[in-house]
């Protein structure tokens, strides 16, 4: 697919958000899905070679647009941050298996760092017919973005930063653990660094609360062919782990099925 860049806003020296016009994409995307995008417009330039996997941050079906939040970390995302308005970019259709949505539930959304990206789209949808608390963590104030969206589309927005520059000081998982004393959540949705996700898994009573996580892996193709993004999960055979492709069976998994020791070590 191809689409025209409507806006590419640099939020600070770590993050940018790009908005692209594509009716077809906007109509077909679901929360938790991702895309593979070429970070520059020329198909005859082979460096960087691979497309970048980015979570779908927001959709505007009426306008036929979608947004991607990206962290400026490497060659690809640096190039992406320099893309000008009106540039035509090529990208895949919405990929992967997204979140299983709930209705009439009390849910918590936990996002860490750039892992907040797919949670924007998710909270907008969930907030229509659920009670939604958003727990948003980062290392510093620069990592806390798009708060206006969460303020609008959640019942409570709780922020924590490791340096305390905004919100509570410490890990968001500590704040979340504390909140469990006063709140009974039916379901937790989480996306962020793997140690954060594992911490949530360790905190909650996994038999009582539904727990869905969105995982991030390096991937070459995004469509299940390269086998570069394998996630170890509990399989039907008790003697052997199952291997799931983060790009097809994921990126959203049932947190109960993940073999956290292996996934975090890797």
């Amino acid at each position: 697919m191809k689409g025209i860049v409507l806006e590419n806003k640099i939020l600070n020296d770590k993050y940018g958000i790009i908005c692209i016009k594509s009716d077809e994409f906007a109509q077909n995307a679901a929360p938790g899905q991702f895309l593979m995008i070429r970070p520059q417009p020329y198909d005859y330039i082979y460096d960087p070679l691979l497309r970048r996997p980015l979570g779908i941050c927001d959709i505007n079906e009426k306008k036929g647009t979608f947004s991607l939040l990206y962290m400026i970390v490497g060659k690809g995302t640096k190039l992406l941050s320099k893309i000008k308005k009106k540039t035509e970019l090529s990208f895949s259709e919405p990929l992967g298996t997204g979140f299983n949505l709930t209705t009439d539930k009390k849910v918590a959304i936990i996002g860490g760092g750039v892992g907040i990206a797919p949670m924007t789209f998710l909270s907008k949808i969930l907030h229509e017919n659920n009670e939604v608390d958003v727990f948003y963590g980062g290392a510093e104030e620069k990592d806390i973005l798009l708060t206006h969206i969460f303020e609008e589309y959640s019942n409570n927005l709780i922020i924590a930063t490791e340096d305390g520059s905004i919100g509570h000081k410490g890990f968001i998982t500590e704040v979340f653990e504390n909140s469990l004393k006063f709140n009974n959540y039916d379901k937790i949705f989480a996306c962020g660094p793997k140690p954060m996700l594992k911490a949530v898994y360790d905190i909650i009573d996994i038999e009582k609360i539904e727990f869905e996580v969105s995982l991030e892996e390096r991937m070459a193709c995004g469509i299940g062919a390269c086998l570069g993004c394998i996630i170890s999960t509990i399989g039907t055979d008790p003697n052997s782990n199952s291997q799931k492709r983060c790009c097809v069976e994921g990126p959203v998994f049932n947190g109960k099925e993940i073999i956290w020791e292996t996934v975090c070590k890797e």
């Binding site: 460096d47 070679l49 390096r218 070459a220 390269c226 394998i230 291997q243």
Partner: peptide, 23 residues
């Protein structure tokens, strides 16, 4: 065959490295 542990791929200049391990 299960293949190698992760990480299995890394992008390089105009190319990529893989060690999928024939899963």
């Amino acid at each position: 065959e299960k293949g190698n542990p992760m990480p299995r791929i890394m992008e390089t200049h105009a190319g990529m490295l893989n060690a999928i391990g024939l899963q």
